[in-house]
């Protein structure tokens, strides 16, 4: 069985920019473990003669032609409005801290 340690939870939370209270870490590590266990059932399937794939749907070479379809200014406005902060034609973001 895969162990999800408290440190794993902290690391994943940090990478996802999630703030998790210290008291909840145990709970999440149990939940994550449960998810992995559920998925781990797949390991019981014999895949010796099955070629590896990264996808469930076998669509190869789905392309579009190189043509421009511009969004209307309405769409642009809607997208800009979705952001927590907007300044004129820009998205506005808080002060960026160095990594």
């Amino acid at each position: 069985m895969t162990r999800i340690t408290s440190d794993d939870v902290r690391k994943v939370a940090k990478l996802c920019r999630l703030e998790i209270p210290e008291d909840d870490i145990e709970k999440y590590s149990n939940q994550l473990e449960g998810i992995l266990e559920y998925i781990a059932q797949l390991e019981r399937i014999d895949t010796l003669n099955v070629p590896p794939t990264t996808r469930a749907v076998e669509v190869v070479n789905a392309f579009r032609e190189d043509t421009i379809v511009s969004s209307s200014s309405d769409v642009r406005d809607k997208i800009l409005d979705l952001a927590p902060q907007r300044e004129g034609e820009f998205f506005r973001v808080p002060k960026i801290l160095s990594e």
Partner: peptide
Amino acid sequence: SSKIFTAASTNFGDEPNTHIDPVVCGL
């Protein structure tokens, strides 16, 4: 002429955020 995964224009030097669409922004 258009972006790698969507039909928005790649033109340089236009007004800010004129070449955005739902795919660019991953909606």
